[in-house]
Amino acid sequence: MVSFKLKDIATREERFAQGHKMCPGCGVAITVRQIMASFEEPVVIANATGCLEICSGTFPHSSWKVPWIHSAFPNAASTIAGLESMYRAKLKRGEIHKERKIKFLAFGGDGGTYDIGFQALSGAAERGHNFVYVCLDNEGYMNTGGQRSSATPPGARTTTSEVGKVLQGKQQFRKDLTRIMAAHNIPYAAQAAPSKWLDLMKKAYRAFEVEGPAFINVLCNCPTGWHADPARGLEFVQRAVDSCFWPLYEVESGVVRITYKPRKKIPVVEWFKDQGRFKHLLRPENEELLESIQVEVDRIWNQLLKDAGEEM
């Protein structure tokens, strides 16, 4: 088992190096560093189009000290599936030493994972490739200026779910992708947040440990798209966790386990406040809308508690 002592993590070789162009305070960059520090085996990475890809691989610079490929927006999962297949083909033919263990990792944002890349991910999961897929969910198409995705929270203002005279931000709830991936009956699926870094790193470790597809959905604050103070990014992420809008849990072999239960569950409005994208929801005329979001968050949380066999 890899050590999760702070001293060891801090002195472990950085495979995602400094010099990338992610925004200061970006939850994605923090998450990627945590993921990369949670295992020691050699790794090959496929990256969907998005902030991480653009900011870490613009010619002639690269932040990656490991083999890395970017192909297009919707196909990180199928690209890593091809790589993993080539690895197995070469193992079978003795072109790689059988002791040479390589891990396969794909990164995608919520756009490249929940939406345009969902089919490729579902297919790769069903086929059972041995890979870890990490969704860096910042709740919108933030690389292109902040458009809605199916991960965008209800009521959030984005450039394609505007707030106006008749509409108050996104009209729909969010897709529960973690549960959908767990429903593929893959060995491991989990939901995590960089504000609970040890929980996240242990999940990443477990994801690499299991044989077969593993999926981790990580809520990442977006310094620009959330219209909130970047210095407080992880605080906002933690509020999503503490409001149970973003519960931390894992599903292994069908068993649901909640890995962090807030001592005091905060109202969802606590997670919304201080973020510009939710500002309109705090207006008195949107009280009903806010209430309906709270009801839905509670319903989903209670269902999760039930599935995990825990007391409500």
Binding site: I69, S78, A81, G82
Partner: peptide, 13 residues
């Protein structure tokens, strides 16, 4: 789409 994407990954491999 995934077939050609997997070919890209495999060939790059």
């Amino acid at each position: 789409h995934s077939a050609m994407s997997a070919c890209v990954g495999a060939a790059a491999g």
